[in-house]
């Protein structure tokens, strides 16, 4: 039986990969994939907490996280398509209308 710490370490690695992708990748779709990666790291912590704490609320939370992730992906990808139609690119370096 793996310890709860090993799950946390795995989740940390995944979350770190996600943060790296959001900060350094320039393709908007890859940024969104990195966000999915981070959400999954959180899900892993929830499910492992279910096991260590003897409480199934964590699994219900995962259900909600997946719901929100699906909504986020649908709306986000719609925005990506709209951006591509307008500017012909989805490179975050060029999408600086707000001077960010």
């Amino acid at each position: 039986m793996p310890t709860s710490e090993s799950y946390l370490i795995l989740a940390t690695i995944m979350f770190g990969c996600g943060v790296f992708g959001v900060l350094f990748r320039k393709n908007l779709i890859l940024v969104m994939m990195s966000i999915e990666l981070m959400l999954n790291a959180v899900n892993l912590v929830f499910v492992s907490a279910t096991q260590t704490l003897g409480n199934v609320d964590g699994q219900v939370m995962v259900f909600f996280v997946i719901t929100v992730a699906a909504c986020e992906a649908a709306v986000g990808l719609a925005m990506v398509i709209a951006l591509y139609r307008k500017y012909g690119t989805i490179d975050t370096d060029f999408l600086r209308v707000l001077r960010g």
Binding site: T67, A70, C71, E72, A74, V75, L77, A78, M79, I81, A82
Partner: peptide, 12 residues
């Protein structure tokens, strides 16, 4: 989910 569905249709 309903909101997201409507929003993504409108945006795209």
């Amino acid at each position: 989910i309903l909101l997201a569905m409507v929003a993504s249709i409108v945006i795209a």
